[in-house]
Design a protein around this nucleic acid. Structure first.
Lengths: 250, 250
DNA sequence: CGACGGTTTGACAATCATCAAATACAGTGG
DNA sequence: CCACTGTATTTGATGATTGTCAAACCGTCG
């Protein structure tokens, strides 16, 4: 699980993802590659950023899964979104930004500083990739709101699995209909506004109906089209040009 | 309701709001003022932007209430957020952006193009105000996720009312604990992931417990502190400098 | 082996949805 | 001024979805 080859192939997720978002030149790719060299690791379940803390640098997730979350006073937790390899967190334009949510590692995670864009220079592609990444983040947040507000437990789970599939695919990670999803049922519950008990029962229903398999940290989508239909899933689109082809696969 | 004085005082909401977000110079204020002169109106319940449509210009809400929403295939609707006077919609950095949600007027609304910022020039304040506005929009979206995922109907309503109060106050609109809220119970239901029937009963409970009044499109917060306590409401903070004073009032 | 975190199961309760009807309210035209 | 219309609010009866609590099971790791 930690061989050199595996590690090398994992650390290119940011490059794959950002390249799919916009045309990135050689010098920009070199910057990215250089940044990922300086990656640091964060242990599983450790905080990367606390709510209310100043944000020092935009950060790229190089490998592993992280999430944004909020805690209510009585301990209830809501997961606001996930940060997958190639995702960017803390890209703010206002001066002296502070974090509006906590960010914590789910699995062991490696992160690195996002290369700054020099205005006017030939960082056009990178700037566009950052912008598209930010727009996608918003789109996924809107997905999340819709799931929570207007979908049943069954639909929510299906929708979330499809979103993971799409996003991991864009980072060059999954093969076919199977992908790694290192979330406990408690994480899923805190994500989808349900209890872990209900997640368990809903997963059983999805299995019973041969829609998907989920065990040992892996998910297999047995009927992606049927899932997309019941969950009303539509791939995210935030601009005219790129990534129209994002879902054609399998 | 439509006297000249009223109209004049309404159209300054963008200026008030953006000025509270960042230090805006005279020339920038003049630009804003000029932009609001070119405002156009949209009838109640009309669409301002459709999901999937290209976004041509960032737009400022000058007066009235609008919302972002998504429709599921079977007609279920989820309201993703509200656009109040002074709010900005469609501020994207990626090329050829397309809308990830519909935007529609709730009341009659007037909108205008957001003045572009000239790089390098003395539009620093305006740029900062736009950036903070965008960050606040994200913070409110996270509020929304938390409400939907982890709060009861009672808490959701209380939380939303407090958010309206805070946001309207920042646009210079409410007086004391009373403000106008032109939402039907069906809008509230589609916002909070509930049915209008349940909204009705929850409002009755809030009234019965003397927490708030709500009728004829107006809301009075009778016990704002108690409401904030039960809803675990915290005013949004997205940067170090400004608007720390945002909630002190009443 | 024992401890631990995660999953699974069962019995039961609470929140919230559904359906249908009654009531209130604002605007419109006679 | 009043019936007429349409929309929004309110109420009641009933049911489905989801939560709570508690215990059993299962795999992994020291």
């Amino acid at each position: 699980m930690n061989g050199a080859l595996n590690k090398a192939s994992q650390s290119i997720a940011p490059l794959i993802r950002l390249r799919r978002l916009a045309a990135i030149g050689e010098s920009e790719a070199a910057k990215l590659h250089e940044a990922t060299r300086r990656a640091r690791s964060v242990g599983a379940r450790r905080d990367i950023l606390l709510e209310g803390e100043p944000i020092v640098n935009p950060t790229i997730i190089v490998s592993g899964w992280a999430c944004r979350s909020r805690l209510l006073a009585d301990g209830r937790r809501q997961i606001l979104g996930f940060l997958l390899p190639g995702d960017i967190v803390g890209m703010c334009r206002q001066p002296d930004p502070i974090a509006v949510s906590a960010v914590s590692a789910i699995t062991p995670v490696t992160i690195c500083d996002a290369p700054a864009i020099e205005p006017g220079r030939s960082d056009r592609g990178l700037a566009a990739a950052y912008a598209i990444s930010a727009a996608l983040e918003e789109a996924y947040l809107l997905n999340h709101v819709t799931r929570l507000g207007r979908q049943t437990a069954y639909e929510r789970l299906a929708h979330l699995m499809l979103e993971f599939w799409e996003r991991l695919g864009q980072a060059g990670i999954p093969v076919g209909n199977r992908f790694q999803m290192p979330l406990t049922q408690e994480y899923l519950g805190d994500t989808l506004g349900l209890t872990s008990v209900h997640i368990n029962r809903t997963l059983q229903q999805l299995r019973r109906e041969h829609m998907l398999e989920a065990s040992n940290g892996f998910v297999t989508l047995l009927e992606p089209d049927a899932l997309a239909a019941v969950a009303d899933y539509k791939p995210a689109r935030v601009c005219r040009a790129t990534e129209a082809v994002s879902i054609m696969r399998g």
